[in-house]
Write a protein that binds this DNA or RNA. Sequence first.
DNA 1: CTCGATTTTTGAATCGTGTCAAAGTTGGAT
DNA 2: ATCCAACTTTGACACGATTCAAAAATCGAG
Lengths: 343, 343
Amino acid sequence: MGIKDVARLAGVSQGTVSHVLNHPDRVSPGKTAAVEAAIAQLGFVRNEPARQLRAGYSNTVGLLLLDAWNPGFMDLARGVEDATAERGWTVLISNSGRDINREQTYLRLFAEGRVAGLIVIPHDESADGLHRIRTGGIPVVVVDRAESGEHKLSVAVDDVTGGRDAARHLIELGHRHLAFVGDELTAAPVHDRLAGVRRAVDEAVGEGLDVRLEVIPAELTVEAGREVGERLAKLPAKRRPTAVTAAIDLLAFGVLQSLLSHGLRVPDDVSLMGYDDIPFARQLSVSLTSVRRPHYEMGTTAAHLLTDVLTGATPQDRHVVFEPELVVRASTAAGPANYKEGT
Amino acid sequence: MGIKDVARLAGVSQGTVSHVLNHPDRVSPGKTAAVEAAIAQLGFVRNEPARQLRAGYSNTVGLLLLDAWNPGFMDLARGVEDATAERGWTVLISNSGRDINREQTYLRLFAEGRVAGLIVIPHDESADGLHRIRTGGIPVVVVDRAESGEHKLSVAVDDVTGGRDAARHLIELGHRHLAFVGDELTAAPVHDRLAGVRRAVDEAVGEGLDVRLEVIPAELTVEAGREVGERLAKLPAKRRPTAVTAAIDLLAFGVLQSLLSHGLRVPDDVSLMGYDDIPFARQLSVSLTSVRRPHYEMGTTAAHLLTDVLTGATPQDRHVVFEPELVVRASTAAGPANYKEGT
DNA sequence: CTCGATTTTTGAATCGTGTCAAAGTTGGAT
DNA sequence: ATCCAACTTTGACACGATTCAAAAATCGAG
């Protein structure tokens, strides 16, 4: 069950079989046919580990996702796949599920497996693990994390601006009591979004507006959103924020669901925003205002950065930052300060 | 940068370094410490292809998904990951995206990479490819496809029954003009669902009911659903089915969206059902009646089947079939034949 | 202190493939 | 018929880690 058996059956040497596999032009049609027949007959499958050991390189890149259940990351994965496939590489995906141990396990797996390169959406505390691999000689593209350095590669979104845009939108609508749902410590992108929200609030206060911000810690799941919505619904109307912006769409889904089920109207009683603009956002009972991140393009960009480096080409940029885009839908409407002007 | 360098630095032989890595109990504490220090100092990373070549086995299993954008399959993936991780294996995921060429590419990649085993949600026409791999000696668990045979492994759902339950539900509600959205040829599970629907219709006709079924071919995407909804909305009310059952929830999402945007009411004008019961189904503008498939459990079951075989244990079952469950929500209501009784 | 038993360490052989220098073959020009 | 160039084919070696038999070191009992 190796090249040797194929060679014996085809009546040629091992070297010839190897050439049929790797340099078909160097071998005569007759022998090629004989070898291919033998391969088919034996059901020979090339032993990739052996190939890789001898050849010293791999055509596979690894993609380590943070949370495959966030549809945005699946779009990113599709971008990575499309762009790498186009350039002749294959992708192996794994998913840390925001579990730092799994992340370490998979990073080691990829590093030991000698993939040619890695695209990683890292957990927050894993900088050292990435660095260890990077020094191991495997190029790494870090996604969704502020990075810098000439020998590093990254693709990110300016989530501070995104958060600022979100909060501004609400403030301009006339809302003065805002809430941000999400845990500042969970993930760097969430941290940035909150920082942006805070900046917008500070700016508004600087302009003399009486804007108040409340931060409601929560995990990044629909379930957690539901609990937050419940808590909000039970608050007396005067103490309840009139506008809520969630760290990610999934959270907003949960909040929306429990607000509605407690008889509150969105956006009439509470304006609600998500973040990410995942495909389902527009198809909710109340279509969700959100901040769109170009996930697919992030994926293709990360793949291009990586394959450029792998093929020896120097990419023009080593750190790409995308700008998010506010997408206004039905879930946000005028708040107290603008009531005179319309619903 | 290999075991040899570690050995030199630590002042021991290669064999000892290897033992530290694989049989720590066989080596004295002193040498162990020296070796570990050398490993840390050099940043040594074990070369997995070389290990695998010599040792002849791998601790990794492959998971080939059909369509990672269908949330149900991601639940399945989570099940696979949890169950395999628990038993000490790691999972590499790839996604064919219903593209048979990609599927072949990834199957070959996994086979050549000598993963220990595979869990595959196959494209319809790929039976031979799977077989080729199976004979290559790698155990394969086939998901979502009727299989049999003592040396084969599979996990599936009885989608015929699921389709029958769905259609029955609609017929019992009083609907007599049904439509099934989905292409009979796209995928085996869809084929089964339609077969189930047809059976329910035939049974109803046998009982003297005048039930009519229309089949509307469509790809399995939200976008395709939107087009179908559009076409349905433009039909004169008399020629329009009063109940629509979609091959998967994603399709139903699209149908729902365009029905609503054309001013039709769900379920008042048209009853609508999905299939899969993905998490978002209940959170739509009109919560969706659907047929639940236990995706997570399918994943854990597939993983257990596979790891059992890999470890030499004989699994009690080799073919597991789950029963789907009808989940009635707001999108289906009484049809013409029952109008007297309710909404 | 010695001997036998047990534990620790060593070094050579090996896994399956790709490469490369060398040997073999072919074919056209003279 | 001969020769040279171009093309094919061969076979030995190397990649890096594991393994195993054998050598070396250690330990305990007498």
